[in-house]
């Protein structure tokens, strides 16, 4: 085939395109992933029952703020990474800001407590449940986010995969926070932050395989 024949064929009946399609697909994937994560928490794990106490409400709010902050920053960058050359406009530092904030708060909170409390503050009652739940709940959100990114044309697959994992982990944490009763900042920093980082690493490893186009 000659290249001018291909160009003639491609230039016949050119349709206008929707420039918002990439953002729309990422947004849809995010919304669907959030519904699934919250749904799983409601149905399988159950929502925490102590929401009448102010401390529980404050901590629920804090966990949700951390998780939505993570998802918000990461989703904006993911919509860029889904486009060719989008990696030019991504600053991983900004996406890491919620993590820095929660680590700082955790440090302050540990500094104010006697060291005999540290073990309980960091490990909580159920770190294992958190460690397992967040990555497991993240599977479906990750799959739909990958679907959305694949529909576009990412050119840095490791980064696009990492941010897909980050978004999925954050969405999963939003769901899990509704169930989790471990209310301490070091716990949130280590087990929420840590599992979301795990999801990010998994995404970075899977990205080049899943996102090829």
């Amino acid at each position: 085939m000659r290249t001018d024949e291909l160009i003639t064929a491609l230039s016949m009946n050119v349709e206008p395109v929707n420039r918002r399609l990439v953002d729309r697909n990422v947004g849809l994937a995010l919304a669907f992933g959030a519904v699934v994560a919250i749904g799983i928490t409601f149905i399988v794990l159950g929502v925490r029952t102590d929401l009448a106490t102010p401390r529980a409400v404050i901590f629920l709010f804090l966990k949700l703020a951390f998780a939505t902050g993570t998802v918000g920053a990461a989703a904006v960058y993911l919509a860029r990474l889904a486009r060719p050359a989008g990696e030019r406009r991504v600053s991983p530092g900004l996406a890491a800001l919620p993590f820095v904030a929660i680590l700082l708060l955790a440090g302050i909170s540990l500094g104010q407590a006697p060291s005999s409390h540290w073990d309980k503050m960091v490990m909580g009652d159920d770190w294992l449940e958190c460690l397992i739940s967040i990555p497991v709940i993240a599977v479906v959100p990750f799959a739909v986010v990958i679907w959305a990114v694949r529909k576009a044309a990412p050119t840095n697959l490791v980064r696009a995969g990492a941010f897909s994992g980050l978004v999925a982990g954050g969405v999963s944490a939003i769901g899990y926070a509704l169930h989790c009763t471990d209310d301490s900042l070091p716990f949130v920093a280590l087990w929420y932050g840590g599992t979301i980082v795990l999801c990010t690493l998994a995404g970075a490893i899977l990205g080049p395989r899943l996102l090829r186009w």
Partner: peptide, 21 residues
């Protein structure tokens, strides 16, 4: 993939990213 180009961005890097990919 022409819908993935964002006109607020320069065009050459977009083409280059696809070509290099």
């Amino acid at each position: 993939q022409r819908h993935t180009y964002d006109p607020t961005e320069p065009f050459t890097p977009w083409v280059h990213a696809i070509a290099r990919y």
